[in-house]
Write a protein that binds this DNA or RNA. Structure first.
Lengths: 108, 108
DNA sequence: CCATTATATCGATACGCATCAATATGTCAA
DNA sequence: TTGACATATTGATGCGTATCGATATAATGG
């Protein structure tokens, strides 16, 4: 009855550390150790790997191997899709006021 | 560093029972006992009250007293605002493609 | 006031999961 | 291969919280 995707997305972003990681991975590719550095001693490497696995399971991050490092980045398209689902489910009276730009002006 | 509002919203919707309640409260006003009936034996009244309190704390539901009953409904506007914040934070490359309709055609 | 109905609160329990130290796996250079 | 570095996995621990039964609080009718 409940959309499993929406619940998974909500659970994935419902953690402080995970949101911090997502913030750092927004628009850039970072290795695990670089993420650990960005979090500046708040958590250590196994914890970061644990969270990255969770985020990867719900396709919220993309991964790429580069040398010995695995580079991660935030999957913004997935975020957009999941937020869209949230709006359809829980804000149907408002979702009609927010439309994709592509519906206004056709893409060339 | 992390937007506390966004984290609270995520935690509030990161529960199966709470999403079911939100679904039932979408566009309608229901009393606590009516919500319990809708959930059809899955949980009982104290649990529903517990979740409604959580949802009320983050302003995701509106409440109205009517006789002996307290009527609840989903605050769709809050959902919209929180989703907007999610998009700004975690999908900045896509948020420009989703614009409020009011920015396209001025409201008469 | 009392009885009834509706909802909230309390205390206890159990489960999920974030976190860590230790270790395993994987990758590359020499 | 070996050694060094990077990341993943494992097992254990502790905390947050969902859930329930029991009870308290609130509101209405008689």
């Amino acid at each position: 009855m409940i959309d499993a995707q929406t619940l998974q997305f909500a659970k994935a972003i419902a953690d402080d550390t995970r949101q911090q990681i997502m913030t750092h991975l927004c628009c850039v590719w970072l290795s695990v150790s670089e993420i650990v550095e960005k979090l500046d001693g708040r958590v250590n490497q196994p914890t970061v790997s644990h969270h990255l696995k969770k985020l990867e399971e719900v396709d919220l991050v993309q991964v790429r191997q580069e040398g010995r490092s695995r580079l991660y980045t935030l999957n913004q398209e997935r975020v957009t899709v999941c937020c869209g689902r949230l709006l359809v489910q829980f804000a149907p009276d408002y979702v009609s006021n927010v439309v994709p730009l592509s519906q206004i002006a056709p893409v060339k």
